[in-house]
Amino acid sequence: MEVLEKKNEIQDNLLKNFEAKIDRGDAIEPRDKMPDAYRKHLIRQMSQHAHSEVIGMQPEGNWITRAPSLRVRQILLAKIQDEGGHGLYLYSAAETLGISRREMIEQLHSGKAKYSNIFNYPALTWADIGAIGWLVDGAAIVNQVSLQRTSYGPYSRAMVRICKEESFHQRQGYEIMAKMMKGTKDQQEMAQDAMNRWWWPSLMMFGPHDSESPHTGDAVKWKIKRSSNDELRQKFIDKTVQQAEVIGLTIPDKDLKWNEAKKCYDHGPINWEEFYRVISGNGPCNKQRMAHHVKVHNDGAWVREAAEAYRQKKEKKIFH
């Protein structure tokens, strides 16, 4: 009994020290003591973030060979390469919490780890590449800018690096949309159609409303999350409406209007049924995205094996 009490007291003190550190605004580093729940929350969030970067390469990769000019093909290729890099920064940061790259990939393949729901939608036309860069990366940027101030040091540093690279992603997407809106009637319709399909899923990227969000409590207290889902969503809407107006695109929300008292836009209801249907595996591309990742991972196994064999062979040469 006494031993148990002593143990509880130590635990309490550790938690107190940890929370005092968070309150002071100190970063938490890999070797610092941290509550299990903090570590678990970060592993879940960071691995999901890493998987999203990597899975997000698929809808865009689909358009590399069909990009309408050499210029935009090179740009798209560089953009997708960045996303692969973002995945690597984030895997590397998550590994500092004691989970291996292999475990993370296994969790992705088994469905235990999720990735951003948005990548379960298809990129049907070239205008979708514009909409993805402008809206999807645009929404991701709002979230990532806020996460630059997250309490876990390696995560925060990865976010700073990522944010530096993201603004080109959004600009290349907006440029595509702007060009199409200056083009033929067909091109304008194509751009508007992409806008109509990507707008609502982009708003869903910020997650459920604050009133429904199950993970918020500790994540806010421990400064993993620095702004709420609804705050971030509002920020995204407020800056995007004007950009749409400038190039002549209509936001597909008849309830969208400026609220002078609150100094922000009010928007119509989000279809959360669709969100939960897609996130639970029934979106247009869930199976395709995962099947592709599993296939590429397995097809690449021989490369990793060969690299290992080559290293072993070289080491033998050195020591004999």
Partner: peptide, 23 residues
Amino acid sequence: AGSVHASDKEMALQNARDTYTRR
């Protein structure tokens, strides 16, 4: 800057360049 995975030092250098110095 972060970490990379690689089987040997040459690959580690190349992966580090590709991952952390694209700009």
